[in-house]
Amino acid sequence: MPIMTCPEADVPPALRPQVSELRDEAWPPDSASAPRTFAHDPALRPVSMLLVEGSSVLAALDILRKEIVHEGRRFRAAGLSTVVTRRAARGQGHGRRLVTAARTEMAAMELDLGLFTCDRPLQPFYESAGWQQLPGAVLIGGTPSDPFPSDRPGFDKVTMAGFFSAVGLRHRSSFPHSRIALYPGEIDRLW
């Protein structure tokens, strides 16, 4: 099964409704867990990755990118967003394959690191795809004037990471047990 990778705006029109259906299946629009929007901020240069069988999208995710400053150093960072597998296709390794491919894709983008949060029960899944937990790390989303930290009450999130460049690897020890100013904005409050 091929994995299609393209800028979010270039996802073929015939596949867009399927991606929307997958997201609605995972996060029903009327539920408290539903994001405010599935449209990503274009400033984060979203890249979509779709696992496609024939004409059917089995799994999808988006990669969002921006520069961050952590402990006085600039890093080219990216994160996973809206990772979803079709309910009927779960348990077959499709999500793991896509998340593993995303890690490889991010490394090829000349990024220093990948950072994202996930629900605590999903930590082993992401670790099986090559990501590592950053113990005690908190991502601070939103904006500096309206922060959205991943350790807010009611969240049970862990921070996952991958270090890709020599700079990222050299400074990886500065990320565990830290507050990381991600600040992706008001649309993608916490990618």
Rank of each mutant, 00 (worst) to 15 (best):
R86M: 03
T100E: 11
F116A: 01
L98W: 07
E105R: 12
D119T: 03
T117H: 10
L122N: 07
A89M: 05
T100W: 05
R76V: 13
H94M: 08
V84F: 04
T104S: 06
R96A: 15
S81C: 12
G91F: 08
S81H: 10
R74T: 12
F116D: 00
T85M: 02
F116P: 00
L80H: 03
L122Y: 03
S81I: 02
A108D: 11
V84S: 05
A101F: 07
A89D: 01
R76E: 15
Q92R: 14
K66P: 07
R96F: 02
C118F: 05
R65I: 11
R120C: 07
R86Y: 02
R76D: 14
A102S: 03
L113Y: 12
L111T: 01
L64E: 06
A101Y: 05
H70V: 12
M106N: 02
G79F: 00
A77E: 12
M109T: 07
L80W: 00
R87E: 10
R96T: 11
T117W: 06
T82D: 15
E67L: 10
F75D: 08
G91D: 08
R74D: 12
R73P: 03
V99G: 01
L111P: 01
S81V: 05
G72I: 02
D119L: 12
A89T: 00
R65V: 14
R120N: 06
L111N: 05
T85G: 04
L98S: 09
M109L: 15
R74V: 13
A108V: 04
A77Q: 12
M109W: 14
T100D: 10
A89F: 01
R120I: 08
E105Y: 12
Q92W: 06
R120A: 14
H94V: 08
R73N: 10
T85E: 09
E67P: 09
A77N: 10
S81D: 08
V69W: 12
L113Q: 11
Q92T: 08
E110I: 06
M109C: 13
P121L: 00
Q123I: 08
A78S: 15
